[in-house]
């Protein structure tokens, strides 16, 4: 498999990273280099092997389904680049 410039543009957009058109050829080349390296994995016989989800054979902890924290809007908003009247503010999203 190999990534074209168009696909590189698409991956950049899916990642929400702006990339200049001029930078696309180099980006596609780098991504292809990395994917080529990953292709070694095709040499491994993985028949009947379950994909690993966690390293420790332990059951995830459970707890009561109740609210454990909250009531601190000022703290939540204290690092926001733009917060107004108790909300995060973003550019207009509805026309």
């Amino acid at each position: 498999m190999s990534i074209t410039e168009d696909e590189a543009r698409k991956v950049a957009h899916l990642s929400r990273i702006a990339v200049d058109d001029a930078a696309l050829p180099a980006l596609a080349r780098e991504l292809n280099g990395i994917l080529h390296f990953m292709e070694q994995l095709n040499e491994v016989d993985v028949t009947g092997v379950e994909p690993m989800t966690g390293v420790t054979p332990m059951r995830l902890k459970r707890r009561e389904d109740v609210v454990t924290t909250g009531g601190m809007p000022e703290k939540i908003l204290s690092n926001a680049p733009d917060a107004r009247e108790g909300f995060f503010a973003v550019p207009k999203v509805v026309e």
Binding site: M1, S15, L35, M38, V44, V46, V49, E50, P51, T53
Partner: peptide, 26 residues
């Protein structure tokens, strides 16, 4: 970010991500 997005995207998830997780099990 972009490599991760690519290997998780529809059509490549099994070929890359799931295969890598199986190799990890081995």
């Amino acid at each position: 970010m972009m490599i991760g997005t690519y290997v998780l995207s529809a059509g490549f998830y099994d070929a890359y991500y799931n295969r890598a997780r199986k190799v990890r099990a081995l």
